[in-house]
Amino acid sequence: MGPVPRTLELFYDVLSPYSWLGFEVLCRYQHLWNVQLQLRPCLISGIMKDSGNKAPALVPRKAQYMASDLRLLKQHFQVPIHMPKDFFATILGKGSVSAMRFLTAVNMEQAAEKAGLAAEQARGLLEKISTAPVKNQLRETTEAACKYG
Rank of each mutant, 00 (worst) to 15 (best):
K128C: 12
A63R: 07
R101L: 04
D69Y: 03
D69L: 11
S98Q: 09
A119P: 04
M66Y: 02
V134L: 04
G52P: 00
A111G: 04
I44V: 07
M66R: 12
R71T: 13
I91P: 02
Q121L: 11
V59Y: 12
Y65P: 01
P133Q: 09
S130M: 12
G52V: 01
G93M: 10
P80V: 11
L72Q: 07
L43V: 07
L72M: 13
H82W: 09
A63Q: 03
L58Q: 09
S68K: 05
R61T: 13
M108D: 01
V97F: 08
P60C: 09
A112R: 06
M48Y: 10
R71E: 08
M83T: 15
G52S: 15
C42T: 02
A89T: 15
R61A: 10
A115N: 10
A115D: 05
S51M: 11
K128E: 07
P60I: 06
E109T: 15
M100P: 00
E127W: 15
L117E: 03
T90N: 08
L70Y: 02
P133N: 05
L92G: 08
A115H: 08
S68N: 09
A55Q: 02
R123M: 10
A99K: 06
S96D: 08
E120M: 15
K114W: 11
L73S: 14
N107V: 07
E120A: 12
S96I: 02
A115P: 11
K74F: 04
A112N: 11
K54A: 10
S98M: 12
V59N: 12
A105C: 05
A132C: 06
V59K: 11
A63G: 15
G95I: 01
L73T: 07
A112G: 10
N53V: 09
D86W: 11
L92Q: 09
M48F: 14
V106W: 01
R123K: 12
S45W: 02
D69P: 13
L73C: 14
P84Y: 03
V134P: 01
G95F: 13
A122S: 12
Y65I: 04
A111Y: 09
L117F: 09
K114E: 15
K94W: 12
K94F: 12
V97W: 00
E127D: 15
A67N: 13
K94M: 05
F87A: 04
F77H: 14
P56D: 13
Q78S: 14
G46T: 01
V97S: 05
S68V: 07
G124V: 02
F102N: 07
E127C: 14
P56I: 01
Q75A: 10
S51T: 08
T104P: 00
K85M: 03
Q121D: 12
A89N: 14
L125H: 02
Q78T: 08
E109W: 08
K94Q: 15
Q121A: 07
I129Y: 01
Q110H: 09
L92D: 13
K94V: 07
M83D: 13
V79D: 03
G93P: 00
G93K: 03
A105K: 00
F88M: 09
P60D: 03
L117R: 07
Q75I: 07
Y65R: 06
K114V: 12
F77Q: 05
P80S: 11
V106L: 15
M48E: 03
A89C: 08
P84T: 15
